[in-house]
Amino acid sequence: MDKIRVDTDLLEDCAGLIGNCGTSASGLAQEIAQVLSSLPESCTEKYSRVINSYKREMQSISNDLGFLKTGINKAVQLFEECEQALAQGTPQEIGKEAFDSFISGVKSNIDWNSWPWSWIDAVLDFFNIDKYGRDYVDPGAEAQQARDNMMRSQIEELFYSSYFSDANWDTATTEEKKQILNDFKKNVNSIFGTNVTADVQYFKGESYENGYYDPNTNKIYLNENTLDIRSREELMTTVVHEMRHAYQRAVVNDPSGYIVSEETAKAWEQNNIPGNYIEYDPHDPAKTDYNAYHDQPIEADAFGFSESVNYDSHERYK
């Protein structure tokens, strides 16, 4: 059985640093609150709402970091209990099922090359520490829709540039197409506020497989075999679709950092639990229900958003 050793001194240092960050964020939140209170009454509701949303965001970051410090301490304590239980062969205080689930959950999320950060993330994710705590504010479905509309408009603005046009695409080599798609991904990453920094990856798959997002590597993958047979619009739809999955993941990990309703965020979280995701494979008799695949929360959202973008908006600016 693999052993996981925890350098508690190092974790304590990390917790201290994170606590300092939380204090800084708290200071920023107070400054924003001061700006807000000094606004004249004539200031439109729109600006007031925007500033309020920044204030909430900073308060949320501050609170989360505060909880993170205590969260790490708690996680270390629980993990040490688990290690003791493991050494004795009998789980203590927590049920065996939960214990096994904890161990496999943590192990599957550990990137041994970048510990302790991935370990900390894995433990915090497992315990779902205070994501919807007393300081969480549900932005609601209307604000979520408004945010989606804004991000959609920002993506469509990318097509004002001829770099992302059919004219450029049609004369591009395969390598140039990869570069265009990668640059497009970078822009979408910035618009979504996600952290998919790695280049677009490629795999050789079947024709019905356009791409996928892997939450373990936090990278998006496109089917290389489709590069020369699919239209620019179709490939860009795939990039937005996969990046939307990255966005969903980011929302689930930090709901207060994004404008997504609590109901939606929780539906995405449930759908992401291993065993809940419905796969489609036309060659596997057990996985041929396409509608079940297409209509599950994270796919319905990713298909819906990526297909609602107008990838030809540059046509209006010729």
Partner: peptide, 8 residues
């Protein structure tokens, strides 16, 4: 019945 569908 779906005999073929695109996945992403």
């Amino acid at each position: 019945k779906t005999v073929y569908g695109v996945i992403m």
